[in-house]
């Protein structure tokens, strides 16, 4: 579990939540480039019949250094198959790469690829096992989830991604005692935030539930409403929510809207 003050990054078990293909490609590209910089072994699970424009080779067709890394095996494609979604298989492949001398390993794939070969319930178990593996090995796994395909399940799914969730405008990660949100919250992502908060507050065993706002750069009215709606169940049950360390302009909006006076809301640092 991350400590408070978490800043979004591209390591660990990361959930890439995308609305459009361009977002997915941009996220995967950033994550792969970071892996190459680290000298990591990079694995990508993709369907054998993936169209060229969606495949890893298609994504990097104009980047000779990436294609060269594929040729010499630093970047490797794993054809999707039920056996490749076995935690024991994943562990073995990761350990083999580490024993070859790679300092770290990175693995990515789209959830829809998994759902084509194994049931969603089994995939959830794999996700949980992967989260464990990311804490015990120098491993980063980037799980790509289409907004259309997973909908409200995003709240539950985010709980099993310790490296955080990345959406186009904002990032979030479970932290000690609560959830950290970073980036920009507005009308375009309020539903996702509500799902995240509802799941996170339900899963949290602590009270007050901490919402770490240190890295939140922008908040508008729909975003602020989402903070309230998403924590409604928790507060309605007598729980409290601490909005921790908002930047001055975010704190000002919270104050203007009277959120700091709302039942069950605390603002400021933990004493």
């Amino acid at each position: 579990m991350k400590t408070r003050g978490w800043r979004p990054g591209w390591d660990g078990h990361v959930l890439l939540f995308y609305d459009e293909e361009s977002q997915r490609r941009a996220g995967v590209a950033t994550w792969v480039h970071r892996g190459l910089t680290q000298g990591a072994k990079i694995l990508c699970t993709q369907p054998p019949d993936d169209p060229p424009d969606r495949s890893l080779a298609g994504l990097f067709r104009d980047e000779p250094d990436v294609l060269e890394a594929m040729e010499r095996g630093q970047i490797q494609v794993i054809p999707a198959d039920p056996s490749t979604y076995d935690p024991a298989f994943i562990e073995t492949v990761v350990d083999e790469a580490l024993s070859e001398g790679y300092p770290s390993v990175r693995w990515t794939g789209d959830a829809t690829t998994a759902w084509d070969v194994i049931p969603r319930s089994r995939h959830e178990l794999v996700e949980r096992a992967t989260d464990e593996l990311c804490t015990s090995r120098p491993l980063s796994v980037l799980c790509q989830y289409s907004a259309v395909e997973c909908g409200d399940a995003i709240g539950f799914l985010s709980q099993s991604h310790g490296g955080g969730l990345r959406e186009q405008l904002f990032q979030a990660a479970p932290v000690e005692g609560g959830l950290a949100v970073a980036g920009e919250l507005d009308a375009s992502n309020q539903q996702i935030l509500i799902s995240l908060l509802t799941a996170a507050t339900a899963a949290a065993g602590s009270d007050p539930f901490v919402l770490d706002l240190r890295c939140l750069d922008f908040l508008d009215l729909p975003g602020a409403r989402a903070l309230m709606f998403g924590t409604l169940d928790h507060r309605g049950g007598g729980g409290q929510v601490r909005l921790e360390s908002p930047q001055p302009h975010v704190a000002q909006l919270i104050h203007l809207l009277g959120i700091d006076q709302a039942e069950g809301i605390l603002v400021g640092e933990t004493q």
Binding site: D217, F218, L219, D220, H249, L253
Partner: peptide, 10 residues
Amino acid sequence: IEQFRVAVNE
């Protein structure tokens, strides 16, 4: 600037 951004956004 950040306050102005919020106003423009609203």
